[in-house]
Design a protein around this nucleic acid. Structure first.
Lengths: 157, 157
DNA sequence: CATTTCATGCATGGATTGTGCATGATCATG
DNA sequence: CATGATCATGCACAATCCATGCATGAAATG
């Protein structure tokens, strides 16, 4: 495993907050020179500790008003069936996140959509008819309390 | 609502994929000059269509090996109770996402943790004892099929 | 047609980036 | 203790990038 020191941690936390910080800004924040921050950042990127940088878009401003969670139970637990389902998940862009879970449901999907009609569409025309799927249960998001996508790095070092 | 044309959409999609794209790279991708991309990007940031830029960190490399979803039912639906619960959610860094849902459970939390002991901790020492909480049910993530955090912009324009 | 408005590309001074290089700290070994 | 190897660091600098002023041309307005 790659060695990560206190400087790296500070840099990671800072870049998690603002992914477009310049090396100089980073340097001022963590107490190193800009060149050193450049070198460390490149190392963290190469080692895939930083897997990428992304702009965070406001869904509301782009007419994505609806988030929903969909619990899926597969028809059978055969490898073939799981594979078919994974291909479905990868194909459908509306599915933002997908997890295999312990508990009563096999998979949990998070979808982001324009409206209830789109949700109805995806459930009735995409998920339900798919041969791998046995049961579907959806929950609509009424309110988004928190959506940080950040690792709680403070609990480290 | 802010006007968004095809150039903007292309830029947003590109920056969603790579938040550190240069104005020149952006220009090559969308077919404008770099200066124009700079201006458009600034506008999209000011209008909060782009709400921020974030480095995406690899949890595994930083010893965050466990993701879990926790369904919460509140003790009562009083405003006071909901407020107390929201404060709890905001205070606890391990809670990455939190949503109020339709359906049987009131809230869905996504937590990212080091191990099962941490999960046990947060359930038994943070959530269960809290006066606002009546019922807790957790599901552990066995596999992460997809975690894009991206809007499906292709379905637009 | 005349005027206004506005998005655009170009030019440019100032900031940013990555890399070569010398320095100093740390550490293992004789 | 002395020596040498290793490595992170800061500085210097050339290449690149950024934001802004400015002129142009297209579209809208009267």
């Amino acid at each position: 495993m790659i060695e990560i020191d206190a400087f790296d941690l500070k840099m990671l936390a800072a870049l998690q907050d603002d992914g477009r910080l310049t090396n100089q800004q980073l340097a001022d924040l963590v107490g190193l020179s800009a060149s050193q921050c450049s070198r460390r950042r490149m190392r963290l990127e190469e080692e895939k500790v930083i897997s990428g940088y992304h702009a965070d878009l406001a869904g509301e401003a782009l007419d994505f008003g609806l988030i929903a969670f969909i619990h899926i139970t597969l028809a059978t637990h055969s490898p073939d069936n799981a594979k078919r389902f994974r291909e479905l998940v990868n194909r459908v862009d509306d599915i933002q996140d997908a997890y295999a879970l312990t508990g009563d449901a096999d998979y949990l999907l998070k979808v982001i959509l324009r409206d209830l009609k789109s949700l109805s569409d995806i459930i009735n025309n995409v998920l339900m008819p798919h041969q791998s799927v046995a049961h579907v249960r959806s929950s609509i998001v009424l309110d988004r309390l928190k959506e940080s996508a950040k690792l709680p790095l403070k609990t480290l070092g």
